[in-house]
Design a protein around this nucleic acid. Structure first.
Lengths: 192, 192
DNA sequence: TAGGCCATGTAATGTGTTACATGATTAG
DNA sequence: CTAATCATGTAACACATTACATGGCCTA
């Protein structure tokens, strides 16, 4: 399971389930997401396994917090996952499945509209990531090869996202050009 | 749910669960995978919903086959999914999570080994897809913009995979260059 | 005759999402 | 006073994987 290990990775410093959800939405989102209703029982399970300990802490606002701390055994489990080689699982892309079967709609314009839609989302997403990269560079004030180990690893993760989305935008452009060449070849603008 | 719709898409012509599994492993693999133990109950559910009908057929080898045929209602459900806009879900990448937390190993050489491993897998995968593309082009004997609608949609799905994997290889190369610049900057070859 | 492929399925377990339930504090 | 945010959790459901169960036919 990846979520367990991601939580262990996040808990380099102690945090509550609520804190971790915030961290997921801000930093982890590019490669994983999780709901609070999944995070809470997973933390409890990790504690039962001796990888975390917890303590109650009063909160300035709202109910008392349950703060989790990683144990040495938890750290070991994390290191084992990190050094066990890449987990390249079978990735799932619903929208690619849609393209694959889109010919059954019987209207190439439907495909075109679809690709334009995908492209818009990808361009927006890329801009957001580019903004994060700019902030990280400005904040560090030195070139990436001189970042702290932590900053360096976060930087290269971010770069992966940027490369990946760039490829998707390039694919949209290539596909739109291909479709438009085809449309231009028929005087009327074919619909099938 | 995507699997239901992917099965509907596959059933443009009638097929058995076993046939569909073979088709998944050959054609669908690039964007989705499914086990027989998931395919069989899903087909039964689609039949219960009136989107498929089934009939038993004797097999030349082995037990009798259960062949499913898509109904007009099933076709309608597929078209609705295809024309309902792209399903761009939150993608999950375990190996990116590993990179993100890899600094906690305390050895940049571990990161380097990891990236080299990822790169090897990606290059092999890209070669396989490039081979498929070559075969499709040779088999068609004309440029992609003149492919049949079906062939065209399969082609652009394949191109997405090639773009996507190319980006990952480029990211590996960029990351390895970054790491090596850093190693070169310390005379000894730092380990943290 | 042993192992692989054809062909169907169920059961158990793991993983993830949505909906529900509770209640305090704070800003507008 | 109302809505947002803080903070915890359970229950029900949806989706996916692994293991198990059965048995015929074909090839080495």
């Amino acid at each position: 399971m990846s979520l367990e290990h991601i939580l262990l990775g996040c808990l380099e410093t102690p945090a509550s389930g609520y804190d971790l959800k915030t961290y997921f939405d801000q930093q982890i989102r590019q490669f994983w997401s999780a709901e609070l209703s999944q995070i809470y029982p997973t933390l409890k399970r990790l504690e039962g396994r001796g990888w975390l300990t917890s303590r109650r802490e009063p909160s300035t606002k709202g109910p008392p917090r349950k703060v989790y701390t990683r144990t040495p055994a938890g750290r070991e489990a994390l290191i084992e996952w990190l050094t066990g080689g890449p987990q390249v699982g079978s990735e799932r892309f619903s929208y690619l499945a849609q393209v694959f079967f889109m010919d059954q709609v019987g209207d190439l314009q439907a495909t075109r509209r679809f690709i334009v839609d995908v492209r818009g989302r990808m361009v927006a997403w890329r801009a957001a990531l580019a903004q994060v990269e700019r902030e990280e560079r400005d904040h560090a004030g030195k070139p990436p090869e001189q970042f702290s180990p932590n900053g360096l690893h976060r930087f290269i993760s971010l770069r992966m996202g940027i490369h990946s989305i760039g490829a998707k935008v390039a694919w949209c452009d290539e596909t739109l050009a291909l479709l438009d060449t085809r449309f231009a070849a028929t005087t009327e603008g074919e619909t099938r």
